[in-house]
Amino acid sequence: MPAPTRNTFGEGLEAYGQIVMSNTKAISRFGGRLAVLYKFVDAALPQLTLAQRMEVEHCCRQGIEHVLSLSDDGHCPLSITKRCCSRPMFS
């Protein structure tokens, strides 16, 4: 059985650079998608009635709470909850 080879510093650095480039591209794509979604929301919400916007806000808050409950082992501090939930999301 041949002995395992070890990466040289240059090979490790090259691999690290490839990972950084891959992550940079992924973040850029994500940022582009997020910008498009923001523009869509900015264009779509004014077309809704006040009642429809309130329903969208309610559903959005429920969705956010659900996602946070899946990813959080603790509870959100009350001060943050009050600050985030006291103002309307969509006016």
Rank of each mutant, 00 (worst) to 15 (best):
L50Q: 15
V56M: 13
D42P: 01
D42T: 03
E55R: 12
A44L: 09
K39S: 08
Y38N: 06
R61P: 01
C59H: 07
I64D: 09
G74H: 04
Y38I: 08
G74Y: 00
K39I: 00
F40A: 05
C59R: 12
E65Y: 07
H75T: 15
F40S: 04
E55T: 07
V67F: 11
L37K: 14
Q62T: 10
E65M: 12
R53N: 09
I64E: 13
H75K: 14
E55G: 04
V67I: 14
H66S: 12
H75G: 14
L70R: 15
I64S: 12
H58W: 03
V56H: 06
I64Y: 08
L50T: 14
L48E: 08
Q52M: 11
E65G: 04
E55C: 01
P46F: 10
C60F: 12
C59I: 00
Q52G: 01
S71Y: 07
E57M: 03
K39G: 08
L50S: 14
D42I: 00
Y38W: 02
C60Y: 08
I64C: 06
A51G: 08
R61H: 05
Q47M: 15
R61D: 02
P46W: 04
P46V: 01
M54N: 13
T49L: 11
R53T: 08
F40Q: 07
M54Y: 05
I64M: 11
H58V: 00
P46T: 10
A51W: 02
H75W: 10
L48Y: 14
L48W: 13
Q62E: 15
L45Q: 06
H58D: 02
H66V: 03
L48M: 15
G63I: 02
R53M: 05
G74Q: 10
